[in-house]
Simulated assay, not measured.
Amino acid sequence: MSENENFDPQAEDGGPADDGGADQQPEKGDSQTFEEIVEGVELENPEEQKADDLPSREAQLESLLAERTEDLQRLQAEYVNFKKRSDRERNAARQSGVEKVVSSLVPVLDAIHMAREHGEVTDGSGFKAVTDALEKVAADHDLSAYGEVGDAFDPYLHNALMQIPLPGATVVSVSQVMGRGYKVGDRVVRPAQVAVSDPDPAALGDQDAGEDAPEADGESPADGVEK
């Protein structure tokens, strides 16, 4: 082996010999410094504030809990309002669809009603089975007919077409029904087509006379008064 085979230039110059990289510095990026970790985070310096001014850990947790509780309550209220609004819109859409369907049945029900009045719907006939089925469908959707002679006139429920006197009427009343009205629940689908009558003066006179007449077995106001 020659003399220069294990020659170390640093050893010759008086520097430390190469020990296999044990004293080498770590490359940049191998570890983070404290300044890099806390970069962008505002730290409170306890030396700059009094100990009494610093909030305790319990106070900070209570404040954070109150904020999160308020956020949760607000979200819950928004969800409840959204659910109520959705339910109202769904019910309104369903009701509108039902009214649209049953409104198309009104002319058919009018024809069935006229056929019944003329005696064309007889027991055991196929036509009666059909009419019963249609009326059952209408009843299942809460569709009902109204409008009878003698009913008190209501402009919301009745459409007055003419005036025909009705003997014995004490209020403005329905004297004739040209077309029945229909309702789905409390909502009017079609008002009744009617003739109306003003109160009968004779009936009003008889009513007033009955109210003013003294009782047969009773005493008059002058009875029992000493003269």
Rank of each mutant, 00 (worst) to 15 (best):
S2L: 07
S2F: 02
N4L: 15
E5L: 12
N6S: 07
D8T: 01
G14M: 06
A17K: 10
D19L: 08
K28E: 15
S31I: 05
E36S: 10
V38K: 02
V38L: 06
E39A: 13
E42M: 02
E44V: 11
E44Y: 01
P46F: 01
E48K: 11
D53Q: 01
L54N: 01
R57F: 15
R57S: 11
L61S: 00
E67G: 12
Q76I: 13
A77M: 13
R85H: 01
R88C: 02
R94I: 14
V98D: 05
V98T: 10
K100N: 14
S103A: 06
S103T: 14
P107F: 06
V108L: 07
E120G: 03
S125P: 04
V130Y: 04
A133V: 01
A133L: 04
L134I: 14
A139H: 08
L143R: 06
G147C: 04
D151G: 06
Y156A: 15
Q163V: 15
T170P: 03
V171F: 07
V171Q: 13
V177S: 13
G185V: 06
S197I: 09
P201T: 09
P201R: 06
A202L: 08
G205A: 14
A209F: 02
D212P: 00
P214L: 08
G218H: 03
A222T: 11
